[in-house]
Amino acid sequence: MNDFTLSPEQQALLPGSQEVEFYRRHGYWISPQIIPEEVLDAAERGMRRFYARDYDAEVPGTFDFGPGQEEGLRKHDYTSQRVGELAQLLAYPLIGASAAVLAGAAGIRLWHDQLLYKPVDGSGVPGNVGWHTDRQYWQSCSSAEMLTAWVGFHDVDETGGSVSFLEASHRWDVEGLDFFSQDLSGMEAALVGQGYPFDVRPTRMKRGQVSFHHCKTVHGSGPNQGAAPRRSLAIHLQPLDNMWRSHVLPNGEQARHGNDFLVGTVDGHPDYADPRMCPLLWSAGSSGSDR
């Protein structure tokens, strides 16, 4: 059994009632510096190992990256399944514990992770992340309280293409959003045209801080105009009560997720509690998690 016990110093860094209220009102929250330097140093090594294809394990059913994916914005899924240093980062207990407090969950499992690399802006190099919600890609999930922890490997602000959130957008019901769109101004016009206020909240984070956002919060990021590539890991998280649901999309197709082809099954349906692909990251029965 995993030992999720936090030290008194770690417990003091968990979100309290005011922080939870902020998250519920605004749709996001930025933690204090909760990730130790040595954990982030190891994650940086793990990122380099991943791009060098120096894997600790292969994951059948996932896709390697091919020619052309070394340029521009890089997004690679399930990297923690391949590289140990990245698995150690997402398992750092304050991430799962903080997520459980924010979501009001009895515990937190991994949904999946995405290793993200945003190069310095250059001519012809796409670097934007279009306005989108995570929920729009997770329609096969029963929980509406899933959330994402975004961990930068270094200091980051708007100049470096940090994540931005649209204020209180987790309460919206929006259409036409796309992670891969480079047309941020066009997407802004579309949102305004749907009657939503476009109130952007950029993030400015020191190394070791983590941003958490609700699965329905609209977020994206602009180009990296800093001096070095933006490097990060997005850790997508699910409360323990999340499970597969049958959901038909507007185009008539059954909603599916990449996890559906990687996890085991229960009663013939994908098992989102599969301990191999969706390990337990926090249990509320652990000391300090119910602050």
Rank of each mutant, 00 (worst) to 15 (best):
G252T: 12
R291N: 12
A255C: 08
E145S: 11
G264M: 01
G176F: 15
V83G: 09
T203L: 11
A52G: 04
P270Q: 06
R49G: 10
F179M: 03
R171M: 14
P270E: 04
L177R: 11
D178S: 09
S283L: 10
V125C: 10
S98E: 02
R53M: 06
W138V: 11
R204S: 15
P126R: 06
G127E: 13
D241P: 00
S185I: 07
S232V: 04
V20I: 12
T265K: 06
E19I: 07
D3H: 04
V59N: 05
S287A: 12
E158W: 00
E85Q: 10
Y196C: 03
F198Q: 05
G152I: 13
V59S: 13
R230I: 09
S246Q: 14
D3N: 10
R48C: 00
S211G: 02
G160H: 00
V156C: 03
Y92N: 04
Q182H: 10
G152P: 15
V266A: 04
Q139R: 15
L6P: 02
S7A: 11
I34G: 02
H132G: 06
A255F: 01
S286Y: 01
S164W: 09
C278Y: 03
E44Q: 15
S80W: 08
N259A: 01
Q194Y: 10
D271S: 02
G160P: 02
L115C: 07
F179P: 09
R276E: 09
G208T: 11
Y78F: 07
P119Q: 08
D267K: 03
H170C: 03
L249N: 15
A97D: 08
P275M: 13
E158V: 14
W111Q: 15
Q238H: 04
Q10C: 07
W111S: 14
A99K: 11
L102K: 05
A255S: 02
S164M: 14
K216T: 08
S246N: 14
T133M: 04
P119H: 01
S289T: 09
T159N: 04
Y92E: 08
R207T: 12
M243E: 15
E253C: 07
A43T: 11
E9D: 14
V20K: 09
G264R: 01
